[in-house]
Measured scan of single mutants.
Amino acid sequence: MAIVADHLGLSWTELARELNFSVDEINQIRVENPNSLISQSFMLLKKWVTRDGKNATTDALTSVLTKINRIDIVTLLE
Rank of each mutant, 00 (worst) to 15 (best):
residue 2 A to N: 15
residue 2 A to P: 09
residue 2 A to Y: 13
residue 2 A to T: 15
residue 2 A to S: 15
residue 3 I to V: 12
residue 3 I to P: 06
residue 3 I to H: 05
residue 4 V to T: 08
residue 4 V to E: 00
residue 4 V to L: 06
residue 4 V to N: 04
residue 4 V to G: 01
residue 5 A to D: 03
residue 5 A to K: 04
residue 5 A to Q: 04
residue 5 A to C: 07
residue 5 A to V: 06
residue 5 A to R: 05
residue 5 A to M: 00
residue 6 D to T: 08
residue 6 D to Q: 14
residue 6 D to M: 07
residue 6 D to G: 10
residue 7 H to F: 05
residue 7 H to V: 09
residue 7 H to A: 11
residue 7 H to P: 01
residue 7 H to N: 08
residue 7 H to E: 14
residue 8 L to R: 02
residue 8 L to P: 00
residue 8 L to V: 03
residue 8 L to H: 00
residue 8 L to C: 02
residue 9 G to T: 00
residue 9 G to W: 02
residue 9 G to K: 05
residue 10 L to H: 15
residue 10 L to R: 13
residue 10 L to K: 10
residue 10 L to M: 11
residue 10 L to Y: 11
residue 10 L to P: 12
residue 11 S to V: 02
residue 11 S to D: 15
residue 11 S to H: 04
residue 11 S to W: 00
residue 12 W to N: 03
residue 12 W to V: 03
residue 12 W to C: 00
residue 12 W to E: 01
residue 12 W to D: 02
residue 12 W to T: 00
residue 12 W to G: 00
residue 12 W to I: 03
residue 13 T to K: 05
residue 13 T to E: 14
residue 13 T to Y: 12
residue 13 T to F: 13
residue 13 T to R: 07
residue 13 T to W: 03
residue 14 E to F: 06
residue 14 E to I: 08
residue 14 E to H: 10
residue 14 E to Q: 13
residue 15 L to G: 01
residue 15 L to P: 03
residue 15 L to C: 06
residue 16 A to H: 04
residue 16 A to P: 01
residue 16 A to T: 02
residue 16 A to Q: 03
residue 17 R to Y: 12
residue 17 R to A: 13
residue 17 R to K: 15
residue 18 E to S: 04
residue 18 E to Q: 06
residue 18 E to V: 10
residue 18 E to P: 00
residue 18 E to W: 02
residue 18 E to H: 07
residue 18 E to M: 07
residue 18 E to K: 05
residue 18 E to R: 00
residue 19 L to S: 00
residue 19 L to Y: 01
residue 20 N to C: 07
residue 20 N to Q: 07
residue 20 N to A: 10
residue 20 N to Y: 07
residue 20 N to T: 06
residue 20 N to L: 09
residue 20 N to E: 11
residue 21 F to H: 02
residue 21 F to A: 02
residue 21 F to R: 01
residue 21 F to D: 00
residue 21 F to T: 01
residue 23 V to S: 12
residue 23 V to Y: 05
residue 23 V to G: 13
residue 24 D to M: 06
residue 24 D to F: 04
residue 24 D to L: 08
residue 25 E to C: 02
residue 25 E to G: 02
residue 26 I to L: 00
residue 26 I to A: 05
residue 27 N to D: 08
residue 27 N to F: 08
residue 27 N to R: 11
residue 28 Q to C: 07
residue 28 Q to G: 08
residue 28 Q to E: 14
residue 29 I to H: 06
residue 29 I to E: 09
residue 29 I to S: 02
residue 29 I to R: 02
residue 29 I to K: 01
residue 29 I to F: 03
residue 29 I to W: 00
residue 30 R to H: 05
residue 30 R to S: 12
residue 30 R to Q: 09
residue 30 R to V: 09
residue 30 R to L: 13
residue 31 V to N: 13
residue 31 V to D: 15
residue 31 V to A: 12
residue 31 V to G: 11
residue 31 V to L: 15
residue 32 E to I: 04
residue 32 E to N: 12
residue 32 E to L: 08
residue 32 E to W: 02
residue 32 E to V: 07
residue 33 N to A: 14
residue 33 N to E: 14
residue 33 N to C: 14
residue 33 N to F: 11
residue 33 N to W: 09
residue 33 N to S: 13
residue 34 P to S: 10
residue 34 P to E: 08
residue 34 P to F: 06
residue 34 P to G: 07
residue 35 N to K: 07
residue 35 N to W: 05
residue 35 N to H: 08
residue 35 N to L: 04
residue 35 N to C: 08
residue 35 N to P: 04
residue 36 S to D: 15
residue 36 S to K: 04
residue 36 S to R: 06
residue 36 S to M: 03
residue 36 S to W: 05
residue 36 S to P: 01
residue 37 L to M: 13
residue 37 L to K: 09
residue 37 L to I: 13
residue 38 I to G: 13
residue 38 I to R: 15
residue 38 I to W: 12
residue 39 S to C: 13
residue 40 Q to C: 10
residue 40 Q to I: 04
residue 40 Q to Y: 04
residue 40 Q to K: 07
residue 40 Q to R: 06
residue 40 Q to L: 02
residue 41 S to Q: 01
residue 41 S to C: 05
residue 41 S to V: 02
residue 41 S to F: 02
residue 41 S to W: 00
residue 41 S to K: 10
residue 42 F to M: 15
residue 42 F to C: 09
residue 42 F to V: 14
residue 43 M to I: 06
residue 43 M to V: 12
residue 43 M to E: 14
residue 43 M to P: 01
residue 43 M to H: 14
residue 44 L to S: 01
residue 44 L to H: 03
residue 45 L to Q: 02
residue 45 L to I: 07
residue 45 L to R: 01
residue 45 L to A: 02
residue 45 L to T: 06
residue 46 K to I: 05
residue 46 K to A: 09
residue 46 K to F: 03
residue 46 K to H: 09
residue 46 K to E: 13
residue 46 K to L: 06
residue 46 K to P: 01
residue 47 K to E: 08
residue 47 K to I: 04
residue 47 K to M: 13
residue 47 K to G: 07
residue 47 K to F: 10
residue 48 W to P: 01
residue 48 W to R: 00
residue 48 W to H: 03
residue 48 W to N: 00
residue 48 W to G: 02
residue 49 V to R: 14
residue 49 V to M: 11
residue 49 V to P: 00
residue 49 V to S: 13
residue 49 V to D: 06
residue 49 V to Q: 15
residue 49 V to C: 11
residue 49 V to N: 14
residue 50 T to L: 14
residue 50 T to H: 14
residue 50 T to V: 13
residue 50 T to R: 11
residue 50 T to K: 15
residue 50 T to I: 09
residue 51 R to W: 05
residue 51 R to L: 02
residue 51 R to S: 06
residue 52 D to H: 05
residue 52 D to K: 07
residue 52 D to Q: 07
residue 52 D to I: 08
residue 53 G to H: 07
residue 53 G to C: 05
residue 53 G to P: 10
residue 53 G to M: 03
residue 54 K to W: 09
residue 54 K to T: 10
residue 54 K to R: 12
residue 54 K to H: 14
residue 54 K to L: 12
residue 54 K to Q: 12
residue 54 K to P: 11
residue 55 N to I: 08
residue 56 A to R: 05
residue 56 A to T: 05
residue 56 A to N: 05
residue 56 A to G: 04
residue 57 T to N: 15
residue 57 T to D: 11
residue 58 T to V: 14
residue 58 T to H: 13
residue 58 T to D: 15
residue 58 T to N: 09
residue 59 D to Y: 08
residue 59 D to M: 14
residue 59 D to I: 06
residue 59 D to T: 11
residue 59 D to A: 13
residue 60 A to Y: 06
residue 60 A to W: 06
residue 60 A to T: 08
residue 60 A to S: 10
residue 60 A to E: 15
residue 60 A to F: 11
residue 60 A to K: 11
residue 61 L to V: 01
residue 61 L to G: 00
residue 61 L to W: 00
residue 61 L to E: 00
residue 61 L to C: 00
residue 61 L to T: 00
residue 61 L to A: 03
residue 61 L to P: 01
residue 61 L to M: 08
residue 62 T to Q: 09
residue 62 T to K: 15
residue 62 T to R: 15
residue 62 T to H: 07
residue 62 T to L: 12
residue 62 T to W: 06
residue 62 T to C: 08
residue 62 T to E: 07
residue 63 S to N: 11
residue 63 S to W: 06
residue 63 S to L: 14
residue 63 S to Y: 13
residue 63 S to A: 13
residue 64 V to F: 15
residue 64 V to T: 11
residue 64 V to N: 08
residue 64 V to M: 15
residue 64 V to G: 12
residue 64 V to L: 15
residue 65 L to I: 02
residue 65 L to F: 03
residue 65 L to N: 06
residue 66 T to K: 11
residue 66 T to D: 06
residue 66 T to C: 09
residue 67 K to H: 08
residue 67 K to V: 08
residue 67 K to W: 04
residue 68 I to Q: 02
residue 68 I to V: 08
residue 68 I to T: 00
residue 69 N to G: 15
residue 69 N to W: 00
residue 69 N to C: 05
residue 69 N to Q: 12
residue 70 R to V: 01
residue 70 R to E: 05
residue 70 R to N: 10
residue 70 R to P: 03
residue 70 R to L: 02
residue 71 I to N: 10
residue 71 I to E: 12
residue 71 I to T: 13
residue 71 I to L: 15
residue 71 I to M: 14
residue 72 D to M: 03
residue 72 D to R: 02
residue 72 D to N: 05
residue 72 D to G: 01
residue 73 I to V: 08
residue 73 I to R: 01
residue 73 I to T: 01
residue 73 I to A: 04
residue 73 I to N: 05
residue 73 I to C: 04
residue 74 V to C: 09
residue 74 V to M: 03
residue 74 V to S: 04
residue 74 V to D: 00
residue 74 V to W: 00
residue 75 T to D: 10
residue 75 T to L: 14
residue 75 T to P: 08
residue 75 T to V: 11
residue 75 T to I: 09
residue 76 L to W: 05
residue 76 L to G: 06
residue 76 L to P: 06
residue 76 L to Y: 05
residue 77 L to C: 10
residue 77 L to W: 05
residue 77 L to Y: 03
residue 77 L to M: 13
residue 77 L to T: 06
residue 77 L to F: 05
residue 77 L to D: 02
residue 77 L to A: 02
residue 78 E to R: 08
residue 78 E to M: 09
residue 78 E to W: 04
